[in-house]
């Protein structure tokens, strides 16, 4: 048996914090192995919606199903065995080594007092190697560059052996080369991915489908060429953009008009 790509269903998910409705009745399904991008201006509710998937935020209404199970009825450990998240929190206050940080990813699979087994070490080594971090594994995490940190957090997510990967602005602070390599890597991982992204062109390039959000509501859902039209971008972001097709890949891309 191997780890299979998972399914995710958001059914009428609404989130309220301190009386403000940050996410309003969002529904969509993500199929096995699919990569869905969440787009929208700052404050559109992308991160808040993602938080309901890895169970940091409880929806005021609606249901989040991970592999058919309501996450609110599951333990945090169960959720972490199925969903891994790469977030912006950086474990930089303590002298943790890169390997320590990656090892944290195994936690949800371990019983109390259970030591790291050969299997755990094997997974950790594989994840470090995949992210080209073998040589840095004993370095303090806080001495890494932005790109290296992001790779370490991705390695930590990989050893969770998730069937769904959640990424919140994964390309922030990365140069264009790391942005491309990270998204390409995630795309080819073969598991289900939901990512909040700011760069419309990267989203169009890598995602199967896009969910465009505005003020907590869903403004559009569909293939990149369906969602990214100049009228809709104008409506949501209040900017004029020209939509074109890439001459070699055939994917849509946008330029300021």
């Amino acid at each position: 048996m191997t780890i299979q790509p998972g399914t995710l269903s958001l059914i009428d998910v609404s989130v309220e914090i301190a009386g403000h409705r940050l996410v309003d009745a969002i529904s969509f399904d993500v199929g096995p192995g699919e990569m869905v991008g969440l787009l929208g201006p700052n404050g559109a509710g992308k991160s808040t919606l993602l938080r309901t998937i890895y169970k940091v935020v409880k929806p005021a209404m609606g249901t989040v199903l991970v592999n058919g199970n309501d996450v609110q009825h599951q333990t945090s450990a169960w959720v972490a065995q199925n969903v891994a998240a790469v977030l912006q929190d950086m474990p930089a206050d303590f002298p943790l080594t890169v390997r320590d940080v990656v090892t944290m990813g195994r936690s949800a699979h371990k019983a109390l007092l259970e030591p790291d087994t050969a299997h755990d070490r094997c997974l950790i080594d594989a994840a470090l190697k995949l992210q080209r971090l073998e040589a840095l594994q004993d370095r303090p995490f806080r001495t890494l560059s932005g790109g290296e940190r992001q790779r370490a957090l991705l390695a930590r997510a990989l050893v969770q052996q998730p069937s769904i990967l959640v990424l919140d602005e994964p390309t922030n602070h990365l140069d264009i080369r790391y942005q491309l390599s990270l998204l390409k890597f995630v795309r080819e991982l073969g598991i289900t991915v939901v990512a909040a992204l700011h760069d419309l062109n990267l989203a169009a390039m890598f995602c199967d489908r896009l969910c465009l959000m505005q003020g907590g509501r869903m403004a559009a859902l569909g293939r990149p060429d369906e969602v990214l039209t100049s009228e809709r971008i104008n409506k949501v972001y209040c900017v004029e953009m020209v939509v074109q097709r890439h001459p070699s890949t055939g994917k849509v891309f946008l330029l300021p008009a």
Binding site: L87, M90, M104
Partner: peptide, 19 residues
């Protein structure tokens, strides 16, 4: 092991399976 997760930050610790 759970104490280690606290060092990751609250949100990450939840995502890593800790209440």
């Amino acid at each position: 092991r759970r104490l280690n997760l606290l060092m990751a930050g609250d949100e990450s610790a939840v995502a890593l399976g800790l209440d």
